[in-house]
């Protein structure tokens, strides 16, 4: 019998005022799966993953994250968010704290870890993303690629069960994209459940279990990479692929 899914989204609909931005989304994510979501801008990809940790709220349908349903009356959204890590396009590190302080802020205050223990854990993670030498620098002193790796380490510091990536490399200079993608690939190999919104199709081909194509707020196509790139089922998908792979 299959384990119950980590994330279960059923008939999800969202509106911004009168604008119907997510239409009838149905999605199930099992433990250890790597999902890549792609699509043209404005298709609702970012909005969708932001609904998963309730940074955005939905008006219709249901979202279950590891058994807990996300509703307006939810008591402890903080607990859900601790188990779901998120990395943003613009890194969004706290500029007034050092790299190390960025990482230990949440563990110290939410997990009630003693400072020394939190710092040890943080240093281990910084080593994992190969940036331990910058631990005492301020984010403003780091390059974009370094900042994004710190952001990944910061999210990992809370021991999340799921990681969400919202276009993690779109704001980076080309030569830094690889260093960040390498970190994400290693995470995938270590068994993390992941949803990644990205335009990096090479990365998707190498790592993803499933690729989801979204357009106009709905899921158009969902398939394994081997099928997705070679035999797209819908015309929309084919048009999109022809535009981004040339």
């Amino acid at each position: 019998m299959a384990d119950s899914p980590m994330i279960k989204i059923k008939d999800l609909n969202k509106w911004y005022a009168n604008f119907h931005v997510l239409k009838n989304i149905n999605l199930s994510v099992q433990k250890g799966e790597i999902i890549v979501i792609c699509g043209p801008s404005g298709s609702g990809k970012s909005t969708l993953i932001r609904c998963i940790n309730r940074i955005e709220t939905h008006q219709k349908g249901s979202i279950h994250v590891m058994g807990t349903e996300l509703t307006p009356k939810i008591k402890n959204i903080s607990a859900v968010r601790r188990d779901v890590g998120m990395v943003f396009q613009n890194f969004d590190l706290f500029p007034h704290m050092t790299v190390l302080e960025n990482l230990v802020l949440a563990p110290c205050w939410l997990l009630k870890l003693p400072r020394k223990q939190a710092e040890k854990k943080a240093m281990t993670l910084l080593e994992r993303v190969q940036i331990q030498s910058q631990a005492h620098k301020m984010p403003g002193q780091l390059s974009g690629g370094q900042q994004q790796r710190v952001a990944i380490a910061r999210a990992l510091c809370m021991d999340p069960k799921i990681m969400l990536f919202d276009e993690p490399t779109s704001a980076l200079d080309p030569e830094m994209v690889k260093e960040v993608l390498d970190v994400i690939k290693q995470l995938a190999r270590d068994g993390m459940t992941m949803i990644c919104v990205t335009h990096e199709m090479g990365f998707a081909r190498q790592v993803a279990n499933r690729i989801i194509f979204m357009d106009g707020g709905e899921i158009v196509e969902e398939n394994a990479p081997s099928e997705f790139f070679t035999h797209p089922q819908w015309d929309r998908t084919q048009k999109f692929l022809s535009q981004i792979l040339d």
């Binding site: 609909n13 509106w15 005022a17 009168n18 119907h20 239409k23 009838n24 008006q59 219709k60 357009d215 106009g216 707020g217 709905e218 158009v220 035999h231 797209p232 089922q233 819908w234 015309d235 929309r236 998908t237 084919q238």
Partner: peptide
Amino acid sequence: MDIKIFTPAPDLPPPF
């Protein structure tokens, strides 16, 4: 396999 033509879902008004 033939490519299918995709019909997008209609825009609905938000719930009351």
